[in-house]
């Protein structure tokens, strides 16, 4: 299977990269791991005339454990996240989601930045990042800006990124004590498949461990963009983490979903799965919060 013809640019610095993007006339795309864009090019769904390979950009690499937040460079692969014990400890849902992406081979190449910039409604890494209140750091010609990840997604395959901008990485504030999180997904098969529904939940318990001090719920594959289930969160916040409240929240999450029917599942079925997975993710996150320091 051949790729359509394109020109390959390999910038050595962030500045060079943004200049290349700024000079672009015609279809220019950024390529990182390439696991998604090359498939789309082979399908002739995309025919960029130029590819800017950002893999060499030092500024987009690395994990940085700061004072109050973690910075994840856009070029970090899913494999690097799923094999990182500190991420498992503090951001379980994110590691859990990255472990479900594609396969061993895809996770070795595919980057978190690529996963987010493709903006698939089903992107595995998006719901967990949303529940951790992630900020997207964007490099523009005039400097860096940072904005909530939720605002980064605009529609299926669409982000806020302008043609001459790059996603540099993600910052995640450290969650408070007694926080647990989980990501669950449903897909036609349990490896190498796209989620029909993905649900991430984060629960922060109060001192006594009975009440849900804070909760975040985010849904994947059931709306044009990864979506925060606000009314479900509202319903559970401040309530005891008990079955009746969890169930009520799960029902609200299902109502908030705006699924479509496609070859993978019908809208009605997806809504039902949202309810089931939300309930399970909340219980699991609650259990993890209970044993968290």
């Amino acid at each position: 299977m051949l790729l359509p013809k394109f020109e390959l640019l390999q910038p050595r610095s962030l500045e060079e990269a943004t200049t290349m993007l700024a000079e672009s006339n015609g279809e220019t795309r950024v390529i990182a791991g390439g696991t998604d864009i090359l498939v789309q090019m082979k399908w002739r769904k995309l025919r960029p005339s130029r590819l800017v390979d950002i893999k060499a950009l030092e500024e987009l690499r690395g994990l940085r454990w700061g004072q109050d937040h973690l910075r994840i460079g856009a070029l970090i692969t899913h494999r690097e996240i799923e094999t990182n014990q500190r991420i498992w400890d503090r951001f379980s849902a994110l590691a859990e989601a990255c472990r479900l992406v594609g396969s061993f081979q895809i996770r070795s190449m595919g980057t978190i930045g690529g996963n987010l910039c493709n903006a698939a409604p089903s992107a595995e890494s998006a719901p967990p990042l949303l529940v951790f209140d992630a900020q997207a750091v964007i490099v523009t010609a005039d400097g860096k800006i940072s904005l909530p990840l939720e605002d980064f997604f605009v529609g299926p395959g669409k982000t806020l990124l302008q043609p001459r901008q790059l996603l540099q990485g993600i910052t995640l504030p450290y969650p408070p004590a007694r926080t647990g999180s989980a990501y669950l997904r449903h897909s036609p098969r349990n490896a190498m498949d796209i989620a029909t529904v993905g649900v991430a939940a984060r629960v922060t318990l109060d001192e006594g461990g009975a009440t849900c001090r804070d909760v975040r719920i985010a849904l994947g594959a059931v709306a044009p963009t990864p979506k925060v289930a606000r009314s479900a969160e509202e319903a559970l916040r401040g309530k005891p983490l008990q079955q009746e409240f969890i169930r009520a929240a799960a029902r609200l999450a299902a109502q908030e979903a705006e699924p479509i029917t496609d070859i993978r599942a019908s809208a009605g079925y997806r809504r039902e799965i949202v309810e089931i997975l939300t309930e399970r993710a909340l219980i699991l996150a609650g259990q993890r919060a209970d044993i968290a320091p």
């Binding site: 390959l8 390999q10 390439g34 090359l38 390979d53 494999r79 081979q105 070795s108 190449m109």
Partner: peptide, 13 residues
């Protein structure tokens, strides 16, 4: 040392 799907690796990489 890491496995990749070589049909999805553009050779410049």
């Amino acid at each position: 040392g890491e496995p990749v799907k070589s049909c999805l690796v553009q050779v410049g990489k």
